[in-house]
Design a protein around this nucleic acid. Structure first.
Lengths: 130, 130
DNA sequence: TTTAGTGCAAAAACTTTGCAATTTA
DNA sequence: TAAATTGCAAAGTTTTTGCACTAAA
């Protein structure tokens, strides 16, 4: 698990790595694009308010990313570089690792913008719905 | 304006193209990645419930896409093919048209999945924050 | 020890639902 | 005209805030 690095970043920015924050991080890392409910059920000892505040903090630090894949908000570790296939018919979501970005194009896109990460969602119809 | 085509799709799927729905569509097409508040203020005659229901309908039909760019949900026409540069420091969002996807890779990614559209968000730091 | 963080309960904000009235095709 | 759609008010959910207590560094 590469949570150590994330915890280090929390400390490095002057925040405390409390057990609750670590528990939320572990919960997020347990599975891709989780709902709040999923996170909560994986760290039942952490109060709901703390989950909200932790997600805010981690998103603000760029360590966790909030996604919209169709239903409510979903969360995942920002460092998990993978992308999503979203079925417009049944709403199912699958991940894929292989990144179809053309790396030569990104710098041009960025211009003055310093590119640090990206996320890609591909919409269409999954095999079950075809 | 290419709203005609969208309105045609609504009718083609058996739904009515009411003035409220058209007003919401016009509101969405007025500017990129709008908040609910922005949409509402552009069609003040349409009740809030109708705005919610229209967004649901249009998202379900794949005509409008809901995004998460950091703050609350944002909406835009699905056919507007463009992507986002999101500053992790100040939260500003810019669009870019040039698509850095390598088209040869997409079919491989899709596999059994029928690819219809995609959206790409690039995260980093904008020129003002560097 | 000091400052940051937690958790409860309450408040606020947001979204959905039931239903009568209205309107589109 | 019939079936779909609207909008209000109310209900239900989700998220945020105030504040006293606790714990990390």
């Amino acid at each position: 698990m590469e949570l150590e690095g994330i915890i280090g970043k929390i400390r490095g920015r002057g925040y405390k790595a409390t057990p609750q924050r670590v528990a939320v991080l572990e919960a997020i890392s347990a599975e891709q694009h989780q709902s709040l409910e999923g996170i909560r059920s994986r760290c039942p000892g952490v109060g709901m308010v703390t989950v909200y505040r932790t997600l805010d903090l981690l998103s603000g630090l760029g360590l966790v990313r909030r996604l919209d894949l169709g239903d409510g908000p979903r969360y995942e570790l920002a460092e998990d570089h993978h992308h999503h296939l979203i079925c417009e018919d049944c709403g199912s979501v699958a991940e894929f690792e292989q990144c179809p970005l053309d790396p030569r194009q990104l710098p041009e896109v960025g211009g003055d913008f310093e590119v640090r990460a990206h996320s890609l969602e591909v919409y269409g119809r999954c095999s079950a719905c075809r």
